[in-house]
Design a protein around this nucleic acid. Structure first.
Length: 525
DNA sequence: GCATGATGC
DNA sequence: AGCATCATGC
């Protein structure tokens, strides 16, 4: 057979109507894209199927999955302690491994398919997760372009700044020590300088930013320490870290994991592009280093308050739904209802509190946690909580019934049927049980937002191809999608993106989308 | 490997 | 306070 003919046969196999099966197919799809093949037709990814059945699965190593789900005795080769296939080291190890993986996956298909059907996970699997494999593989393959000179400049500036702050700190402390070592820092602060410690950690006194913030007035070194932490984080993680992973075409290619989180969200690593700084002025300049290629632009679209909108939809609370339909600032509207004043009379402090309470809600709020966060007493927190649930009674009902159902079943379910087992709910330990309750409340909210966002990604990628547009998705960050577009295509891409994201799922509140464009990620905000 | 502390949504 | 990843120290 000639190479061309082999390629054609292989293409036919990849496109076969019945679809292909594999374990962790995204990696294979990515390789195919590098070799100029079209994305395959996928029947099942056994790794994703297992994830849907149990997002808390300890390991996705095939031998253990075959034992667990394979419904038959099935061993090949020897299992190492790591649960990997152990081969005897012949010259064709890669081929043998591939063959064994394929065999394992094929053994898993039937039982997994049955389990997926039994648990009503078919739609999630076939309509969302499997199509998403291709979308993510294409994003990983493309990567996002960076301004190498800018990134290098930032790294160098930060390096100098860290060094300057280090000297100041050592001078003020009266000794040289490793500032990066919390252990050494504890000795310097709480023994040698005799400062009053605040919170404790498992191993000693806390030196985190929140604690140091409270000690600001006690010693001049504290402010420098806070600055050092900030700048050193930026230097190491974003300066050095990002430069180290710049690849072909001055582009950064992260891996987006589809089977990591308990809630259905994606995760990103090597590098993590989900936590590029945005909050502080010093940090957000890194977003200026993420750019579009020559004569193209970046288009950034994100959902406005999608998780709170999910709560409004799930609870059906008329007050919260009205607050969103009014289209005004949601935290101001919420504050008005909670504190019983008109929206125009809401103070900054009241808006801030309402915002905190809303976030608390997403996290499965309890009075104790809210008190910690707001730095207030338990009683006051409980009273704020009371007013909130007074204003939005159906939200309270929803939270209570969510926990109740989760306790009965042992797992939560999103609106799309995504399951998450929460064994903490039946723990004899009260603190663990409370954690389980918060997880149960959060899972349905964070999970629904994740499901909606995944639908939007799949639909958007499909629409761009259908319209034969050159614009392509290059990055996503939980509720935000970034496209790289030829400049002449921007307005069309904006239109398409807003339409697709806004209509990903019909809810009892609108799905509002913010959108903007620019040459850099920072500019498109 | 775990702990701490930073970043994001 | 829910969900993550990374750098660093020990």
């Amino acid at each position: 057979l000639h190479e061309e003919e082999i390629k054609r046969l292989f293409s036919d196999f990849l496109q076969r109507k019945s679809g292909i099966v594999g374990h962790g197919l995204k990696k294979i799809v990515r390789s195919l894209l590098w070799e100029n093949y079209s994305p395959p037709n996928i029947y099942m990814d056994t790794q994703i199927a297992v994830y849907l059945l149990n997002p808390a699965e300890a390991s996705y190593a095939l031998p253990s999955l075959v034992t667990q789900y394979g419904e038959r005795n099935f061993t090949i080769g020897e299992k190492t302690e790591e649960g990997q296939l152990d081969l005897d080291g012949g010259p064709q190890i890669a081929q043998m491994e591939a063959a064994q993986e394929a065999l394992c996956a094929s053994v898993l298909v039937e039982p997994l398919q049955r389990a997926i059907e039994e648990q009503n996970l078919m739609d999630l699997n076939n309509e969302i997760e499997i199509p998403l494999i291709i979308v993510l593989a294409e994003m990983e393959y493309l990567g996002i372009k960076v301004d190498l000179a800018r990134l290098t400049g930032l790294r160098d500036e930060l390096k100098n700044e860290v060094e300057e702050i280090r000297k100041i700190i050592h001078e003020l402390a009266g000794e040289e020590f490793n500032i990066n070592s919390p252990k050494q820092l504890q000795v310097v602060l709480f023994e040698n300088l005799g400062l009053k410690p605040g919170k404790k950690t498992k191993t000693g006194y806390s030196t985190n930013a929140q604690t140091l913030e409270k000690m600001k007035d006690d010693h001049p070194v504290i402010n420098h320490l806070l600055k050092y932490r900030e700048v050193e984080k930026l230097r190491s993680t974003y300066g050095e870290g990002l430069l180290a992973v710049v690849g072909e075409g001055e582009r950064i290619r992260a891996t987006f994991h589809q089977t990591v989180t308990r809630t259905g969200r994606l995760s990103s690593d090597a590098p993590n592009l989900h936590n590029i700084p945005v909050r502080t002025d010093k940090g957000k300049v890194f977003r200026e280093a993420f750019i579009a290629k020559e004569d193209w632009a970046l288009l950034v679209a994100d959902y406005n308050q999608i998780e709170l909108r999910c709560i409004a939809h799930l609870s059906g609370d008329s007050g919260l739904i009205q607050a969103f339909e009014a289209g005004e600032d949601i935290h101001t509207s919420t504050a008005a209802q909670v504190f019983g004043v008109s929206p125009s009379a809401v103070s900054k402090a009241q808006r801030e509190r309402a915002k905190m309470v809303s976030y608390g809600l997403i996290y499965g709020m309890e009075a104790w946690g809210l008190a910690q966060r707001l730095g207030i007493g338990n009683k006051e927190a409980a009273s704020i909580l009371n007013s909130y649930f007074g204003a939005f009674p159906s939200v309270k009902d929803y939270m209570e019934s969510t926990v109740q159902i989760a306790k009965e079943r042992g797992y939560t379910e999103t609106l799309f049927g995504r399951r998450r087992r929460i064994p903490e709910l039946s723990s004899p330990n009260a603190m663990t049980r409370s954690l389980g309750e918060r997880q149960a409340m959060n899972a349905g909210i964070q999970g629904l937002a994740a499901d909606i966002f995944k639908i939007a990604l799949v639909n958007l990628n499909h629409k761009l191809k259908e319209k034969k547009m050159a614009s392509r998705i290059v990055l996503q960050v939980h509720d935000e999608v970034i496209l790289e577009c030829p400049k002449e295509e921007i307005s069309e891409a904006e239109e398409v993106t807003i339409e697709i994201m806004g209509s990903a799922f019909a809810m009892s509140v609108p799905l509002a989308v913010n959108i903007s464009s620019g040459i850099t990620w920072s500019e498109a905000k």
